[in-house]
Structure formats: C-alpha cells, structure tokens
Design a protein around this nucleic acid. Structure first.
Lengths: 248, 248
DNA sequence: CGAGCCGTTGAGGGGATTCAAGCTCAGTGG
DNA sequence: CCACTGAGCTTGAATCCCCTCAACGGCTCG
C-alpha cells in the first residue's frame, strides 16, 4: 500500500506516469524493481514511438542505450558474403534488445522495426549503476539473455529445418505468439511479413513463400487481412505440422 | 607479486594446482578473478575428463552445476516433432555451458561430447555467492551469454543459409576455429563429424553430406585423417566461399 | 495515368532427397 | 589366420521439391 508520491503525477515528469502505469512492466526488465526503484529511474528513461522500417541499431556500430519493446515487432538482419539478406531473429512485446551496449560490443545485426513500435530507451549507464545495488536486476538481465539464446536456438530448430511448408507453418505459429491482442485466441490476427521478408527468415525465394501462403489460404488455415495482416487457424496449423511429421 | 600460498602446492588439494596453472584461465569464466578470488573457489571446483558421447545435460532436466570446457567439443541437440535430430550449436575450448542452471531453468537440448572432454564442473551456488561480491564475475557471465547468442545467430546465418556446399564450407571453417592445437595454422587438423551428424547440423541427408565431403576431398581442400579427423585448406575454403558468392 | 512495388502463377531446370547397392574397416569368434 | 558381421561411408539412378526466369494483375503514389 505504498502512497504514490505527488511527482508521479507531475505533468513535467510525463515519464513518471508512463512507468507507473506501464502495461508491460511485469514483462519488462524493470519489472524486477519495486516502486522506490522505479522512482529513481523514470526520469532517465525515454519512451518513444517509431515507424515501420526505423533502424534501432546498425550492424557494426556501438551504442550506449538499450530498448525495451512495449509494442511491435523488430527483426535482426544481416547480409551474407553473397550479398543477400538473412533475418536471424524476431523480438516482440516485453523483449529487451541491444544488450550488447552493456558490454561495449559492436552489433552483429541491423535491428529494424517490422511494425510501428513503442519502446523505452534505457541508457546503459543507468543499468550499470543500478546493477551494483539491485541484485534482482542483474538476475533479470541474465534471464533475458538466456531467453534470447533460447529463441535463437529454437529458430534454428523450427525455422531452418525441413521442407518449406514446415518452416512456414512454424513461422506462422511464432508470429501468433508475437501477437499483442488476444495472444490466446484460436484465430489470432497476426502480422504477416512481406513475402521477401518471409524468404529472408526461412531461406526460400519470394515465389516459394508466395506459393505456400496461397496454398494455406486455399486450405483455409490463413485468411489475409491486408495490409500486412492475416488471421490464423492456430489449431489447424498445429495439426498440419503434426500430420506432416507422420506422413513424412 | 603475490606469494603463492603453500596449500596451492598441497597434493591433497590437487585442484589448487589445476586452477593456478589452468591453460584456459584467461579464456574461462574465472579468468575474471584475481589470485585471492581463485584461492576461495578452487576447492569447490572439480575437473574431470569425459569420453565421447558422454551426456553433460539432458533436455528437459534441471541441474545445479555448469561446466567450463578446458578441451574438446560438445554439441547441443534436440529432436523435432517428426522425430529427427537437429544440432543447433557447437561449443569448444573456453566456453561456458549450462548457464540455465543459474536460473533454475530446464535445458532445451541434450549436450553431448563430440570428442573426449576435459571440463571443470562449477556448482551454481558458488557463482551465485561469488557474484554478489565480485562485480567483474557478473560482467564476465553476461559477456559469455552474449557470446553464446552471437554464436547461435551466426549459426543461422552461416550454417542454415544457401545451398549444401556453402553450408558445408562454413561448417568446416567453424570446426577449424574450434581446433585446439595451432588454431592459426593454414592447414589445421580439425575434428570431422560423422556424416550423420553433419546432416543434423546442416539439415541435409547423410548422402548429400558424403557427396560434398568427397567432392572437397577430390578438390584437395580436405584431406581425411581417420578416424574422425581431417586437415583443411583454410584459404582454399575461404576462396571457395567467395567464388560461390560471385558465381551465384 | 504511367511508374514502381508487391504478390501471384506458370514452365522449365537443377539441386537435394530417396531408394538401393557396394565399399571399407574394426571387432569377433571359429 | 580369416571368414563373418555390422556400422559407417560412398556412389548411382530416379524422383521430387524448390529455384530460376518470366509474365501478369492489383495497388499506391507521384
């Protein structure tokens, strides 16, 4: 039953209200902090909205801040020696990105907005100072690193293995998990990447991606909702994956 | 100019000598510690040698210790819903594995010895206690998490992208980097996986892996040195990768 | 309204898989 | 000593999946 300090409501500190009422606080890094902790940080944090295709980090560069994703999806992409693009990871609501900043390391990938974003920018100095005091923050930080690692390995296992149809089905399930509203719905509305981006995620051509999407549309598993969205029959996709496991 | 305490030489504390003279100390997690730090820990650490195919961690299980690899190579493997194996990562000399233990998380993969291993087993309690005191250890821990993440994403980009020949060439380069002796040699002797394991790493069949290895052997880029080893023309492989980038 | 981007669909070819047979080599027991 | 065995590796032939090349339609935007 902590009393809310007045300055939390102070309009000159808009971030104060934002942090206290943040919809993803339980999901986000600073969910590990209590109210007092929050009071100490919110003036340093800066929330912003970013448009599609905004580049948050550039490959090869260093940066002195990280971001917590409040809403939207970002992709991590790099270029192979042959010159074509490969997307190696997606991140969404609640994810922490740019942890390399804490280690003064260069980024391996461009990090680009797939959908409009709402993010919190966190200076690395803030975390480093806080980290020495708040053990729970470091714990949370490590947990997030492990989540990213799990995600990367699941990507290898799900999105790069087997025939094109299998990879696409797994991608659709992943996109369903990244959906903001009604994440448990049986027919969630997902962000549907451009065919070229699907190709970069699944290592297939635009044409193959298009053919498979059309196929799924005909089968009723996917209903396009332009622009760039679709509703997905989650159970049907699951069933299709398992059926393929047997028929193969 | 620290004086070496007598007990470091005490034969009843064999681990004391092992830590003080450890060949991978600079590489390993506790490289972040000074001599005093080492003195406090070495009795808790337990170095052991493990045979090929030894399973260090079981998927789905939890464990209360991590390992630093002093020598050898391990693979992270899981099983797809269709029932076949997929290797999603390799780790070698100096790498820290099993960090999930610190977070009380289940392992996503089996972790299995590819070659004979020499490892240090570190109880998670030791790190958790030490972590609160030694800030540099936490820093080092985070750095290692990031290394694993980089590795996983490079795996996607290099070992799952493009035609079978390209993926194989990149795998050979990675195996060269994991070589213990003479890591800078132009013709390093590498550990050469069984064709079936190559298939699980690169998502191709045993036959395709075999055909490509034979091809490279005929081209003189690879000289088999049974059992399970080969010498690699590193420059030739590099050139082949770049040539393919252009010709494609 | 033409230009350009994106998505779709078709035809043909190539690379990988599948199915099948032979090979090498280490271990085993007669 | 050597046939026997089985696991791993190699190679061939047929098939199929996916890529390449190409054409076309819908849509946005200058």
């Amino acid at each position: 039953m902590t009393v809310v300090p007045l300055y939390r409501m102070d309009p000159r500190h808009p971030q104060a209200r934002a942090c206290a009422t943040c919809g993803v606080r339980e999901l986000a890094l600073f969910g590990a902090l209590d109210w007092e902790g929050l009071d100490r940080i919110h003036t340093h944090i800066d929330s912003r909205d970013l448009p599609i295709d905004h580049v948050l980090f550039h490959a090869g560069g260093v940066d002195d801040a990280l971001y917590t994703l409040r809403a939207g999806i970002v992709r991590f992409e790099r270029t192979t020696e042959a010159g074509d693009r490969r997307i190696v990871r997606l991140a969404g609501r609640g994810d922490l990105i740019g942890q390399e900043a804490l280690l003064n390391r260069r980024f391996a990938d461009d990090v680009v907005a797939c959908t409009p974003l709402s993010v919190c920018r966190i200076p690395k100095s803030l975390i480093l100072e806080l980290g020495s005091a708040e053990g729970s923050l470091l714990q949370e930080l490590m947990r997030r690193w492990q989540l990213a690692l799990d995600d990367a390995q699941a990507w290898v296992s799900n999105l790069t293995t087997g025939p094109a149809m299998r990879r696409m089905l797994h991608l659709l399930l992943k996109l369903a998990d990244l959906t903001e509203e009604a994440p448990l719905a049986t027919h969630p509305t997902i962000w549907l990447p451009r065919r070229e981006d699907m190709g970069a995620m699944l290592d297939m051509t635009v044409e193959t991606a298009s053919r498979i999407v059309s196929q799924l549309r005909r089968d009723g598993l996917l209903t396009l909702q332009p622009p760039r969205h679709a509703s997905l029959d989650r159970a049907g996709v699951q069933a299709a994956i398992e059926a393929r496991g047997l028929s193969a």
